[in-house]
Every structure is written in C-alpha cells, then in structure tokens.
C-alpha cells in the first residue's frame, strides 16, 4: 500500500471502490487497528489510531469481509458478548436495539452457524452497531446477499446518512451510486480518484473502467 490519503467528513457515506486485490481490505484493516501501517498516519475521529489504538477502536463499528462470527453461539449471546467486550453500559438494551436496527430480531435465539448467509451478514451488522458508534466501517457488506436483502441493506445505510459516518468497501458500482455521497477509487494500493457519483459528466462505470482496467489488460497481453 502507498499513497492512499483521504478524509471522511462526519455524517458522510463514502464508498471505497477498487478491483479485487486493490488493497481495500488492507486499508480498512489499518483504519480499524487490525493491521498497523508501516508509515503514515491514521486518525479516527481525530484520535491517532496507531498510538491510541484502543481509544480509536472504541469509536467505530467494523464489519470485516466475510463476517466472521462464533458459529456455536446464539445470536443474542454473541451480541451480549460483543457488547460486554466493547464496554457497553446497558448490554441487554443495546442488544435489543441493534437486533431491531439490523432486522434480525426474529433470529435472536437461533444458533449463528445454522443461519443463512443473509442473516449472518445482518448479525455482523448488528454487532457493528452494538455500541452505537459514530463511525461504521463495512467491508463488502452486501456480498452474498439476495437482491431483496441488498435493497434493505442499502436503505438501512442510507438512513444513517448525516447521523453516522459510513465507509464501505465494495466492487459493485451500482451500490456506490445507490448509497454513497462520495466515492474513493483505489488501484494497486494507490488512490486514483475521489469523486461524487451521479455528477452529470461522471458516469461511474466509465471512470472505474478507465482508471482500473488498463493494468489488467496489460497483464493479459
């Protein structure tokens, strides 16, 4: 990774776009403190995420790619556990609220390993929301969802607009156009664009193809 500098304003919903292997997940992992950058600076809500990692981590909700969960736990048990780990004051209340918000209240007592992919995804979202963070970081949040679930999810994220800051990574262009205020495109560990989707002169698909496809054709020849 190099030369990826960007800033997300409070209340903004930003799409993080790039072909597979561009470094989206790596960037998000540095933001969430899972990986430490070898150089450069990461600030979360003004806090140095390298030096005061725990402080910074306390301010964000993160849904990793693939949504890894403890499969043997029940949904509410998992959320309670995560709530306790994140120092939530009223855990029972927070569990109810986040289950409701993520639309998984009906799966409350089910065992996570027996849930469908769509449900697991929403459990992951409920987990990210448990401590009511101001900042949400979602890594490919809609991969594996059916079209209805995708639409529900997008509506939910849009409803956070203005209230929560959302950074979501994806390689689905329509997703960015549907939910994001702004889009950052990276390629091979470098930022190549920072633009507002839906502008008259920018057709996202063309921009994306132009910025990212050239290298892969080179690679093919």
């Amino acid at each position: 990774m190099n030369e990826v500098s960007f800033r997300v304003e409070p209340g903004e919903i930003v799409g993080f776009l790039g072909p597979n292997g561009a470094g989206k997940t790596t960037t998000l992992r540095m933001l969430t403190g899972y990986l430490a950058p070898t150089s450069g600076e990461v600030r979360v809500d003004g806090i140095d995420a390298v030096r005061d990692s725990i402080e910074a981590r306390a301010r964000l909700g993160y849904m990793p790619e693939g949504v890894p969960l403890y499969r043997e736990m029940r949904v509410y048990e998992y959320l309670r556990h995560r709530g306790a780990l994140k120092n939530v004051d009223d855990v029972a209340d927070a569990v109810d609220r986040s289950l409701e918000l993520a639309g998984v209240a009906d799966a409350r007592t089910r065992i996570i390993g027996q849930l469908s992919k769509g449900y697991r995804q929403r459990v992951g979202l409920a987990e990210a929301l448990i401590a009511d963070p101001k900042i949400l970081i979602l890594d490919e949040p809609t991969s594996g969802l059916d079209p209805n679930q995708v639409r529900q999810f997008r509506e939910l994220v849009r409803s956070f607009g203005g209230e929560k800051t959302v950074l979501l990574s994806t390689h689905i262009l329509s997703e960015v156009e549907a939910v994001c205020d702004r889009v950052i495109i990276i390629r091979e560990g470098e930022k190549v664009a920072d633009l507002v989707p839906g502008d008259a002169e920018t057709k996202l698909e063309d921009v994306f193809a132009e910025l990212t496809a050239s290298r892969s054709t080179e690679g093919a020849s």
Binding site: R29, T32, G33, Y34, I54, E55, R57, A58, Y62, P64, G66, P68, L69, Y70, R71, R82, L85, K86, N87, E127
Partner: peptide
C-alpha cells in the same frame, strides 16, 4: 482459522 480473530483484535481491548 475461522476469521473471528479480526473482530476480536479490532474490539477496544488490549
């Protein structure tokens, strides 16, 4: 192996 290390290590715990 299950990937749950990622949520664990990104929780605000030392």
């Amino acid at each position: 192996q299950s990937g749950t290390i990622e949520p664990l290590m990104t929780a605000p715990v030392s």
